[in-house]
Design a protein around this nucleic acid. Structure first.
Length: 269
DNA sequence: AGCAGCCTGTCA
DNA sequence: TGACAGGCTGCT
């Protein structure tokens, strides 16, 4: 799915294009996204509302409306938010039409994505509340504390959205490679020095990916339907068997916590 | 901690 | 045909 850098790229695109524009009409095409009996309430909440801001926390994208309602998107694995004048070629699940004539389509091949609307003054359901945003909120001290107090393997630890939010399977693997730490290491067994280094490599990885407008391995597109180029930076993600960029030995493909994880047996300990 | 399930598509 | 895919929840 889109991870933090991809969602941030989309957020910035939408911010450039839609601030101040009002939603004049919406259409829900997939009842799995929103049941038919909820559509009327949804439309009442968002129709004729100008967009005040786009924000992001972890992988959640929020649209703040003038009436203080908030639309929240989670794109999961294959969700896309694309601005188009006419209907896209692929199937779409939701359309937001704006006063300017712009249309925002929510496309989502695997249909895991979700959308909610929060009424004014209401906050996140605790169940969904993400931990501190990996880029905007997480400090080095917080990170080191989170990592070194748990026995969970570091790869799933970095991807636990309740602990820190925004990191997924691509950027966890990349940050671990740069910090020379194996994905299967227990958080508790990571030294203070290593945890500090990992905090830096994670930040660098995320920042560089945003600068390259996200990683397109298959489905991801920005809000203008364009591919990102951060995949060109990947050292290990989906590169099992290829030579390690540092030592040239073949990279090891493995599974850690039920997820694919590629690492270098020589460089990462 | 590990796995099925939610979906659809691609690749070997 | 089966395995796997950028995520997450809920169950055991």
């Amino acid at each position: 799915m889109p991870e933090l850098p991809e969602v941030e790229t989309i957020r910035r695109d939408l911010e450039c294009t839609l601030i101040g524009d009002a939603i004049v009409e919406t259409e829900v095409k997939d009842s799995r996204l929103m049941s038919k009996d909820r559509v009327a309430a949804w439309q009442l909440a968002v129709h004729d509302q100008p967009v005040m801001a786009f924000s992001r926390r972890g992988k959640f994208l929020m649209i703040l409306l003038k009436n203080k309602s908030t639309i929240i998107f989670h794109l999961r694995m294959t969700g896309q938010l694309v601005l188009m004048k006419k209907e896209p070629d692929m199937a779409w699940r939701l359309r937001l039409r704006f006063k300017s004539g712009q249309q925002l389509f929510f496309c989502d091949q695997r249909r895991f994505g979700e959308v909610w609307v929060l009424p004014p003054g209401k906050s996140w359901h605790n169940q969904h509340l993400p931990g501190p945003d990996a880029l905007n909120e997480l400090t080095q001290e917080m990170f080191v504390g989170i990592i070194r107090s748990r026995t969970t393997k570091i790869h799933p630890l970095l991807m636990d959205q309740k602990l820190l939010s925004g990191v997924g399977n691509i950027y966890s693997q990349e940050a671990l490679f740069k910090a020379a730490i194996r994905p299967s290491r227990s958080g508790k067994k990571i030294s203070l020095k290593e945890a500090t280094l990992l905090f830096s490599t994670l930040r660098e990885t995320l920042v560089a990916a945003i600068e390259h407008r996200g990683s397109t391995s298959r489905n991801y597109r920005d809000a203008y339907g364009r591919e990102g180029s951060a995949q060109d930076l990947h050292a290990v993600y989906r590169k099992g068997g290829k030579p390690c960029p540092r030592c040239q030995k073949p990279l090891q493909a493995s599974r850690v916590g039920g997820r694919g994880a590629v690492y270098c047996r020589q460089c990462q300990r």
